[in-house]
Design a protein around this nucleic acid. Structure first.
Lengths: 341, 341
DNA sequence: CTGAAAGCGCTTACAG
DNA sequence: CTGAAAGCGCTTACAG
């Protein structure tokens, strides 16, 4: 009852710039300028108008404003990831980075469905979005939509984009160097890399960085130092079994993700091998729910996904504002998070 | 270069309803009616206008439409969950259920920050959203914003709402009955419940349903049949240790979430107790990444979060359309997912 | 410094 | 069945 009457009141009494202009005894043009800080208005009348607006609780209708300004202060966020392990932090970063500029973001969950994707893009275009951020679960996969001939700028975050666009991804090579560097500083000399499937580009990128870092440190690298498998704990387990059934056992293990690392640490414990005394383990992702529950807690690499999202948002705004930005692959630095392993 | 000229062309040549009216030789009023299927227009001219619109690639400006219709076909989605384990499926469901109606959703990640929340709500109100869906990580926690005196409807999904609103949550009691029923059908007679902290309302709700279901089945319940702890694997481990250090050992375990269940199954395996031969285990959440990687894979309860999100979206639309809907707590059914445990 | 007027791109009574 | 006109709530040249 109470609620309803308030609602009704708000709806009907929705106050417009005409109301504040009238109350302040000026034209809407002057009111508009005063409120927006544009044009020349004496500081006196400006102050008065602002006060009136405040008193009346005036809130400008963004739709009307957008219609004349041809700018909606709205962007679209496309994602094919409904599981969200990597995507949600990115989205949160985008949202946070953008709301400060008064821009809101449309969420479009498109799965792997091209039809759905097109529907979403069309709906957003109709709603006059200023730009698009495309994001996804795989850095080396294209979203199932072509975004290249749109009348608005688009930036790609954590998903593949065309060469002439800006695409923001974590710096996997640098992250790898952080991890291996840490292992070396711990005095480890026989280091192996247990990672995911070769079909992932990040796997190869990290593998290359791994080898190079070891070489740079003057460490010998056995032919089997890089073991590719799946992104699972089980694979971590198995890899340890393979390693320990041979004679060339490592004292440092860099894993392709935290789940593998979790499996490695568990397998090591089952074999009564002390982590980190006998073997040091470093994971990747800093997926807290895994990293913190491992015994001991995982030392790992954080991709700073939220910051990456923030960057994506700001970059899109620069593009929307017509600023020139360097296209290409932007690599955002990763951070080593030292825990117990 | 190519891209830019296309963009420019699209921007400048943005074709309006005036263009199609002119091309079809009718007034904009008629064009509007024909395109929207409103008012009386002969089927001939209607067809012609539609064809012209198609040929010209006319896409109506949703901003202008919203301004006159006083309906933006846009809703806001508030969430305090940036981790997203539960929230993202809900959001995906909302988005999917709404895009069919041509409504887009604004994503607002508000953390636990009231300022941020207010900023988002204000921004969305300015953008004339038709309604709000509030969602969060805890069913028994309020979001850090008061949404009760807004001029638009709001529905709550997976987060606490006021009594006079519709709040959609999973049916924890029914889910519990499914789980326990399954255990009983497996021939289990000494069943315990290892769950999370008493501070969570769902914990007590499930505990009550657990007891009732056992009673209904005529099974005896030991005083310590319900063990409250944390939502972690570690707690699952510990609980098994406690249980097996006593003499009253269970043959069926219902866990408050999949992580606990994972810990339970691991601890059981370490004790050489066969799952599911000696002991059956049922989890909760159907968090696939955990449930599928457990050995054996976890039998668990799925909360159908995506469907819940879809419901929330549809319900909000009903409200927006002025339909009457029954306020209160709506409980959506859970589903038993049988795997190997 | 201030205001009258036109315009953003649609929709909707109201006439005809 | 069709159209002229007003209006949604702002902003922006253009005058004064």
């Amino acid at each position: 009852m109470e609620t309803m009457s308030v609602a009704a009141a708000n709806l009907d009494a929705r106050i417009t710039i005409y109301d504040v202009a009238a109350a302040a005894g000026v034209s809407t043009a002057t009111a508009s300028k005063a409120l927006n800080g544009t044009g020349r208005v004496s500081s006196n009348t400006r102050a008065r108008i602002k006060q009136v607006a405040l008193d009346l609780g005036f809130r400008p209708n963004a739709l009307a404003r957008s219609l004349t300004r041809k700018r909606s202060f709205t962007v679209g966020l496309l994602t094919d990831d409904t599981y969200g392990r990597f995507t949600l932090p990115v989205m949160a970063g985008i949202s946070e980075g953008l709301i400060d500029h008064g821009v809101s973001v449309f969420l479009c969950a498109i799965e792997d469905n091209p039809e759905l994707a097109k529907t979403h893009v069309d709906a957003m275009l109709d709603k006059q979005i200023d730009g698009i951020i495309a994001t996804g679960k795989r850095v080396d996969r294209l979203l199932p939509v072509d975004l290249t001939h749109l009348p608005i700028p688009v930036v790609y975050a954590l998903t593949a984009g065309p060469d002439d666009a800006v695409t923001i991804v974590p710096d996997d090579s640098q992250g790898t160097r952080e991890a291996v560097g840490h292992l070396i500083r711990q005095g480890r000399r026989r280091i192996v890399h247990i990672t995911g499937p070769a079909s992932f580009r990040v796997v190869e990128e990290r593998a290359t960085a791994f080898t190079e870092k070891l070489q740079a440190a003057g460490l010998s690298i056995s032919g089997s130092a890089i073991m590719r498998g799946s992104w699972s704990e089980l694979w971590g387990h198995e890899a340890v079994n393979v390693l320990w059934s041979g004679s060339d056992r490592p004292d440092g293990i860099f894993c392709g993700n935290d789940q593998i690392a979790r499996g490695v640490v568990d397998a090591l414990r089952e074999r009564k091998i002390d982590v980190p005394r006998d073997v040091s383990v470093v994971g990747f992702d800093n997926w807290e729910i895994v990293a913190e529950q491992t015994r001991p807690p995982l030392t790992t690499i954080d991709m700073n996904l939220k910051e990456l999202g923030r960057q994506a948002g700001q970059t899109l705004m620069r593009l929307v504002n017509g600023e020139a930005v360097e296209p290409g692959l932007w690599r955002m630095p990763c951070t080593l998070v030292v825990r117990g392993s």
